[in-house]
Design a protein around this nucleic acid. Structure first.
Length: 516
RNA sequence: GACCGGGUAGCUCAGUCGGUAGAGCAACGGACUUUUAAUCCGUAGGUCGUGGGUUCGAUCCCCACCCCGGUCACCA
């Protein structure tokens, strides 16, 4: 550990890797030259892409004077001169360093630069013999010295114009644990998160345009609800009480509809204390929205429109190859009932199948505890195992069994079903929506059924929320509600098959004692 | 949680039928004033994930554990 009495023992320790020690040695040489390795700022006139754009091909050899900054991504020393590339958030620009043109101090600094260093370069733009727009350095500034080598690969632009990186930074564990290095070195990773931000921005814009109010509801909750999942549990010392990290926003947002905030949405993290895999993260981003005076049909229209609009605005298209299939996210999406889906892909009729048949089928699908599961759970298991993996194109599966939809209104004319739909895309659930149950007595009965299931050992059954029932007694207007898994939407939009790739700092086990 | 694969230099990897390890890139020294995977010459760099065991000897074989990836289970 870091010893406060002897920090030098840490940062200059002789058992650190040689490339690190070399760079610390350069600090001393910089000090001899009177060069401050960590600047306070820099007056930039152009970002790197702006500088590229500022060079006009008007036959003149020389473009405008610019002042640019970035990381040194590459360096080719030719003795009396050198070429290198600077990189910033969204681009790169070549710099040409000619000793004759530099002051002695800047020339000395050039000798002490390393890949990864943040530098500022001032000078005119010009076009090299090979045609690349380049800044000719007249002055050079060190903005931040890199003391640890960034894992740059070597970049090659093939004759076809393809960008190929040799020996890059590819180890997934290292990339996730050191996302800062991943982002610094892999521009395509930065693009993922630019796209992510863009899509979330467009989702917000869409909802704002439709009159939705963005709200924030509690993450620390005395009772959890709104989904079937096991929660994280924590404790508030002063209140002397157990609190749960929310598994969904639902019950709070619907309280707001009761409060006459008739269109609300929230984008935020939910937390579920369950397994981690390609499509599941213990903390993930959810968009939930509720709109008064509409129902699940209204939510279908909204979902199709919102998703295709946001994706189209950010990507320019609504299609993306995902796991080897071209996924078309543009509206309209195909529709089938829950029953049709189970019949077609699972060979099961959820309304007619007997308990024994369902148990047999669930066991055949690898569920070892089928003997202990109630009918509705078996059906749900079979839906997940047999239907979802087949639904690659966005598919609206509607009219769910009422037993697994405790917060949804019964379907008009068919009380065994709920007015609920899910959108399955890329083989996993993207959206869940329903006509919100607004009958307080019915809701009480549904909570009671959940309590029963809980008593029977179902850890995911929802606890009874008396305050929520009180709110319903004040009157929840007819309401449509929808939840969208934002991370999964980003996965589909970027074509990346792992939720970790679209999460800046994905959940990983603590890696204690693994320094260096 | 189960099974499979992996963990070797800063990065990407190879390798040792058991005799304490190599390459490319990065680094360091040198040459080169329009290069772009620059090139050329040279040098250095490793507790082979951790802990045990077997053995004269283990990075390699065995056991346990840790971490990552994949598949399954779990996850409306």
């Amino acid at each position: 550990m870091r010893d406060g009495l002897c920090p030098a023992c840490w940062y200059a320790s002789t058992d650190r890797p040689k490339p690190v020690r070399d760079r610390y040695a350069k600090l001393a040489r910089l000090e001899d030259l009177g060069i401050e390795p960590y600047a306070y700022g820099f007056d930039r006139t152009h970002t790197l892409p702006e500088a590229l754009g500022a060079f006009e091909d008007d036959g003149e050899d020389e473009g405008p004077q610019v002042s640019v900054a970035g990381r040194l991504l590459s360096y080719r020393d030719l003795g009396g001169s050198a070429f290198g590339h600077l990189g910033d958030r969204s681009g790169r620009l070549q710099a040409y360093f000619k000793r004759d043109l530099l002051a002695e101090a800047d020339s000395d600094l050039l000798d002490l630069l390393d890949l990864g260093d943040w530098v500022g370069v001032m000078g005119p733009l010009f076009r090299t013999r090979t045609g690349e727009v380049t800044v000719r350095a007249e002055r050079l500034a060190l903005l931040a010295k890199t003391l640890r080598p960034l894992p740059f690969g070597k970049e090659e632009i093939t004759e076809e114009g393809e960008r190929v990186v040799h020996s890059g930074f590819a180890n997934p564990e290292a990339r996730y644990r050191q996302r800062y290095a991943d982002l610094a070195v892999n521009p395509e990773v930065r693009e993922i998160f630019e796209a992510r931000a863009g899509i979330i921005r467009e989702l917000r814009r869409f909802l704002e345009d439709r009159g939705f109010l963005e709200v924030e509801t509690p993450i620390l909750q005395p009772l959890y609800g709104g989904a079937f999942a096991r929660p994280f549990t924590t404790y508030h010392n002063e209140l002397d009480s157990t609190l749960y990290l929310r598994i969904a926003d639902e019950l709070y947002l619907k309280r707001l509809i009761v409060g006459s905030l008739d269109r609300v949405y929230e984008i935020g993290k939910n937390f579920r204390n369950e397994g981690i895999d390609r499509t599941h993260s213990p903390e993930f981003t959810m968009l939930e929205l509720y709109q008064a005076l509409t129902d699940y049909e209204g939510m279908i229209e909204l979902a199709e429109s919102m998703v295709s609009t946001a994706i189209e605005k950010v990507l320019g298209v609504t299609e993306r190859e995902y796991e080897g299939t071209l996924i078309r996210l543009g509206a309209p999406w195909q529709r089938m009932t829950y029953r049709e889906a189970l019949l077609e892909y699972g060979g099961i009729d959820p309304l007619e199948a007997g308990l024994e048949e369902l148990r047999r089928e669930a066991e055949a699908s690898g569920r070892s505890d089928a003997e202990d599961l109630p009918r509705e759970k078996l059906i749900d298991v079979l839906f997940s195992a047999r239907v979802e993996p087949h639904l690659l194109q966005p598919t609206i599966v509607y009219d769910f069994p009422i037993e697994i939809s405790p917060l949804a209104k019964p379907k008009r004319g068919e009380p065994r079903l709920a007015e609920r739909f899910e959108v399955i895309a890329g083989g996993s659930e993207l959206i869940n929506a329903f006509s919100e149950l607004n009958d307080p007595m019915d809701q009480w009965d549904r909570f009671a059924a959940q309590a029963h299931a809980r008593a029977a050992g179902d850890l995911e059954a929802q606890p009874l929320d008396e305050d929520y029932l009180r709110a319903l007694e004040y009157g929840l207007p007819p309401t449509g509600g929808l939840g969208l898994g934002v991370d999964r939407l980003i996965m589909l939009a970027t074509g990346l098959g792992s939720i970790r790739e679209v999460t800046l700092f994905p959940s990983l086990r603590a890696d204690e004692g693994a320094e260096e």
